[in-house]
Write a protein that binds this DNA or RNA. Structure first.
Lengths: 351, 351
DNA sequence: TTGTAGGCGTTATCAG
DNA sequence: CTGATAACGCCTACAA
């Protein structure tokens, strides 16, 4: 592969001039500039990113650390990040952590050896990244957190409005008359899971509905966890009339459990998920869900990161993107039951 | 960040010795070795991958070029590749091409500047990568193709048995009495789409069923394409009794179209997809599909690639992984119709 | 405006 | 078995 010296010789100039032309770092006489450019694409020369990175003590690589690309919510985030990164001349190094904090730390450490311009991280369970972030900051690289926040995180972050989305979802169940609403949450040490639960509770409180403790089931963000927690919920007396699932994978498990228990959704139990993954609308029944802008999460994070690289020194940004409830067939008004009928009668009598 | 000279001084040896210890490149006296190792983790030293890459003229990065991480089939492949790569000390640089050949070529060119150990490519439309592969080979990097093959590709490749899977899927429809079977294919310049069609045709031929040309609809591998092609098919007279979809996204669109047309799956039309994505089994009805081992595609490709890096000079490997038909509720025996009834009577009479 | 030279951190070669 | 030293390719002072 040709190097800068070859180009210099070919163009009859010095390497400094070639470098100046390539990096627009100084004005070069037009005639020389042209000769250099000609030489460059005659040979198809491209500067070595390794040498450049070594010299500049910084590369144009961005480490992207996520729990698992196989989880259907993350590809959109990654794609968003890659699109922005690519358009601004950066490339993404992808690392999966499986929500394993040790693996996360390991990647964080290893990536340092590449002098990345920065890191986009979807933190794993139990993460505390303050130390790592400090170490990266010292070497001039930024870190932006996405989707969830590590403990004590004070740096740049882009998240979705989990609390608001959960609140709105729960409100729509309440407004259809549901009172016995259960929720199956993700792991509550994850900020997004905890926020969704908080939104759920706030909505219930707003309607003065007391949430039975056993109606709040903590699970993992996986289909099977949703399935088994639902099996528990279905055995409870009284049985919930609606379930708010911490994400769509959980909701898939809920549906499966309802079906296997010989019940029907939505007739017996209404259901809302979170994430609004593509297949949600294809399910039977079509799954209601809270949509969140995965792609924008990625683009926003990458933009912030690269702005930092470019010298943005403004205070830490904590951006929250909007979510939206998508009501579909999995939600119907609560079915009349003795209890409800009795209450209604009382209410009428009271007027 | 500490460098090798710091370590050398700290351990009271020369940089050469440190390098030898770190790379097992020469036997070092145990006492020195120990001192070096101590110094290394006292400072938390890690060798600069940039300097190393510059010197060795090869890095431990692997470029992974895929059409779109957002397409639900690819994450598993990427994950498989990342797992193997990571376990063998390599990292993945992810690039999306959107099936745009120009973008593919662009990535191929750009990545060269990082001196990657090799490339794993899921080729985009119309690809001919022979030239690029040659150029990479010259600089000592390997390329492995996955899932689809570029034109004239003679190098390492890992694909799924598309032809066999399609054949088996079609056979199962045929064995249930279906004869008017339509297929909606992916873009036929993609080898996997073409192979699936070939399997379909072979199965039909084996049963002496003539395939009406209008029953073969070429589309893209997207839901909407499946939707609109199905709308066409449903208007045909006679209408097909079964559809074999080129992939699950297409099948999702087929389902949607069937529903919107006021028909039912499987009562009116049986359906089989391809890929067996996670949500397939959650649909209404549960979607039958041909499963292919996405994760293994990735692991196999990465293994082959790294073996090449490690000096494997054996002839090009073209590995084909097995697929399997998963029959679910979306497929039922063909429903009795006048035509069929008539034919049966004839057959009975003939005995 | 242009050219020269030093050094980024590592590995490989070659004496000792 | 160990140490010194010359590249790898680039960028950037600094000098002209």
């Amino acid at each position: 592969m040709a190097n800068i010296l070859d180009i210099a010789r070919k163009a009859g100039v010095s390497v400094g001039t070639v470098s100046n032309v390539l990096n627009h770092s100084a004005t070069v006489k037009e005639s020389l500039r042209k000769r250099v450019l000609e030489a460059v694409d005659a040979v198809g020369y491209q500067p070595s990113q390794l040498a450049r990175g070594l010299r500049r003590v910084k590369t144009n690589m961005i480490g992207m650390i996520i729990p698992d690309i196989t989880n259907p919510f993350f590809p959109a985030v990654v794609r968003g990040a890659e699109d922005i990164a690519f358009s601004r001349g950066y490339r993404l190094i992808l690392c999966n952590t499986d929500n394993d904090h040790a693996k996360e730390i390991f990647h964080l450490n290893e990536l340092r050896a590449y002098l990345p311009a920065g890191l986009i991280v979807i933190p794993s369970n139990f993460s505390d990244l303050t130390e790592q972030a400090e170490s990266y900051r010292k070497m001039g690289s930024a870190i932006v957190c996405v989707d969830r926040l590590p403990k004590h995180w004070k740096g740049d972050a882009v998240t979705a409005d989990n609390e608001g989305g959960a609140y709105a979802a729960t409100r729509s169940l309440l407004s259809l008359g549901h009172r016995r609403i259960a929720t199956i949450t993700g792991p509550l040490h994850l900020t997004n899971a905890a926020e969704r639960l908080a939104g759920f509770r706030r909505a219930m409180r707003a309607e003065n509905v007391v949430v039975a403790p056993e109606y709040v089931q903590e699970a993992t963000f996986e289909r099977y966890a949703g399935y088994s927690k639902t099996m528990l919920l279905l055995r409870m007396i009284p049985r919930p009339t609606a379930i708010f699932a911490g994400n769509d994978l959980i909701a898939f498990g809920v549906l499966q459990a309802i079906r296997e228990a010989g019940l029907r959704c939505p007739e017996d139990i209404s259901l809302i998920g979170f994430d609004d993954m593509e297949p949600a609308a294809m399910l039977n029944p079509e799954l209601s869900s809270v949509s969140q802008p995965g792609y924008q999460l990625g683009t926003t994070a990458a933009s912030i990161l690269i702005d930092r690289v470019d010298g943005d020194l403004s205070p830490a940004k904590q951006i929250v993107l909007q979510t939206a409830v998508q009501l579909r067939h999995s939600v119907v008004p609560v079915q009349e039951e003795e209890e409800a009928v009795t209450r209604r009668k009382k209410e009428r009598a009271a007027r």
